[in-house]
Computed example of a mutant assay.
Amino acid sequence: MRQGYHATSIDDIARALGSTKGRVYHHFASKIDLFFAVHREGMKRLFDAVVPVVQKEDTGQSTLETLEAMLQAHALALLEHHTYESVVVQGVHLHRFGAMTPEERQTLDELIASRDAFESLFKGQLARLKKAGFLRHASVSVAAKTLLGGIQWSLVWYRPDQDTSPASRESLAREMVNVLMHGLVR
């Protein structure tokens, strides 16, 4: 979080833990392996937040209410797990621009596939909305990327160290989703 992936060394990580490099290497063979583990945990936390909302759809919520609840769960997960989710975003950048070994590339491809599966939850909901006549003639893919991007931008501007209240994070997540779902105009 402080220096980014490339500028952070195992020495930096060990110092932050109050540990030795050897202890870090005992658990992770390399810095990229540690990065992958954090990335996996970040994706797990996103799925853990959103999948229960998707599964509730069978209880009679309208598709619009479900989409709004999915976005709310996603926004809150980003705010509450800011550091993990920032690593997920760094993973996307590494995937697009990073030079790595074929084995590392394969692992990162698997992580990106997980991210794509997460996005597909929203694409599926948007496709149901479009089929039900709730969406304009928008591309489901573009709509999903725009909604998720709007929420994920909070990883850039949100400062978790200045906001320790769960209630204020919930309120902020609601406000973000409200703008995305209902816009700014009365």
Score class of each variant (00 low, 15 high):
E110K: 10
M70Q: 07
F122N: 04
Q125R: 12
L126Q: 00
L76I: 06
A113P: 01
L79N: 05
K130A: 12
E57W: 15
A113R: 03
F122E: 06
T63G: 00
E85P: 12
V89D: 12
S120M: 08
L126K: 01
I112T: 05
I112Y: 04
L94Q: 12
T107R: 12
G91F: 01
H74M: 11
H81D: 08
L111F: 02
R105D: 00
L78K: 10
S114V: 03
G124T: 07
Q106I: 07
V88N: 03
E80W: 13
P102Y: 00
K123L: 03
Q61K: 07
P102M: 00
H81F: 11
F97E: 10
R128S: 08
F118S: 03
L71M: 11
Q90S: 07
G98W: 06
E80S: 12
L108T: 02
L67M: 00
R105A: 02
Q125D: 04
L71Q: 08
Q72W: 15
S120T: 02
A73Q: 02
T101L: 02
D109L: 01
T101Y: 03
V87M: 00
R105N: 02
A73I: 02
A117K: 14
G133C: 00
K56A: 13
D109M: 06
H74V: 07
Q106N: 05
E68N: 01
E80I: 01
T83P: 07
S86F: 09
R96L: 11
Q61R: 10
A75E: 04
H82L: 05
M100S: 14
L64K: 10
E85D: 14
L76G: 05
R96C: 09
D109N: 15
S86I: 11
A69Q: 02
T63S: 14
S120V: 03
R128E: 05
L78I: 08
L129G: 08
M100G: 12
K130S: 11
L67R: 00
V88W: 07
A73P: 03
K131T: 12
L111T: 01
T83W: 15
G133E: 01
S120N: 06
A127L: 11
F122S: 04
H93Y: 12
L79D: 06
V87H: 01
E57H: 15
E68V: 05
Q106M: 09
E68S: 05
Q61L: 10
Y84T: 10
K56F: 03
T107K: 04
A113F: 03
S114C: 04
A75Q: 09
T66E: 14
A113E: 00
E80Y: 13
Q72T: 14
S120C: 06
S62Q: 14
L129P: 03
A77G: 04
S62T: 15
A127R: 14
K56H: 15
D58Y: 13
T63D: 10
E110H: 14
F118Q: 02
L126M: 01
V89G: 04
L94W: 06
A127I: 09
L76P: 04
E119T: 05
Q125M: 12
H93A: 10
G124S: 14
L111V: 02
G124A: 08
Q90H: 13
H82R: 09
